[in-house]
Amino acid sequence: MKKVLIIAMAFISLHTVAQEREKGERSEYTPEQMATLHTKRMTLALDLSAAQQEQVQNLNLSQAEMRKTQMEARKARKTSEEGAKPTADERYAMQTERLDQQIALKAEMKKILSDEQYARWEKMAKRKGKHKKGKRGGKKGKHMSRE
């Protein structure tokens, strides 16, 4: 019984360490590095031309910088207000802003990519969104739409 308990504790501690490492990996990159990596992944998946790569790189860079500033603002808010949750109006404003940014990104990508590339990009984005939903909690809430 002791051996089983020790093995279980070791497994849990290793699992926790691995999760902490995964969380920290993204933040150690600069926005430029994140944009470059994202652009290269897109180039491989979508077979982008050199001109498309440059346009997508600029778009990814602006997105990465925006995400970085938003993340820093969230961290500052968390520490300054002792983790106070945003009000319903603030959450609404944040969601509206996020959706507006997604609409703008989609429009820019539609300008840059060909029809075939855009269709593949949308499939990639849907898969990425489903992957994120799976990591968050598993069950769908009442507020989420059915697919």
Rank of each mutant, 00 (worst) to 15 (best):
T16N: 09
E22N: 07
L5M: 00
A73Y: 06
A10T: 14
E97V: 02
A18C: 06
T30M: 02
S62D: 12
D89R: 05
K2I: 09
Q19P: 00
K40P: 01
E28A: 12
K3H: 11
I6E: 05
Q70K: 09
A50N: 15
K3E: 09
V17I: 15
E81P: 03
L59I: 11
A88P: 08
T87H: 03
V4N: 07
K110R: 14
E32T: 08
R127H: 12
R146Q: 11
K128L: 06
E81H: 09
D115F: 03
Q52C: 04
I112M: 03
Q70A: 10
K68V: 04
G141F: 04
K130Q: 12
I7W: 09
Q101P: 03
M9K: 06
M144V: 11
Y118D: 13
L37K: 10
M66S: 15
K3F: 08
K78A: 01
G137E: 00
Q33S: 05
K111T: 14
R91Y: 09
N60F: 02
E81K: 07
Q33R: 12
S49R: 00
R74H: 05
R91I: 15
A8W: 03
E72P: 03
K126R: 14
D100E: 13
Q95A: 14
I7R: 03
A88W: 05
K3G: 07
H38G: 00
Q57Y: 09
T87I: 02
K106V: 01
K3Y: 12
A119F: 06
R146Y: 02
A73I: 01
S80C: 03
R41D: 08
K110E: 15
E97I: 04
A51W: 04
A45P: 09
A104S: 10
Q70W: 04
L14W: 04
A64R: 04
A93F: 00
K132A: 11
K139R: 12
L14G: 15
M42L: 15
A125H: 10
T87P: 10
P86V: 03
D47I: 02
Q70T: 01
D115K: 13
D47G: 04
G83A: 04
L61M: 10
A73W: 01
Q57G: 04
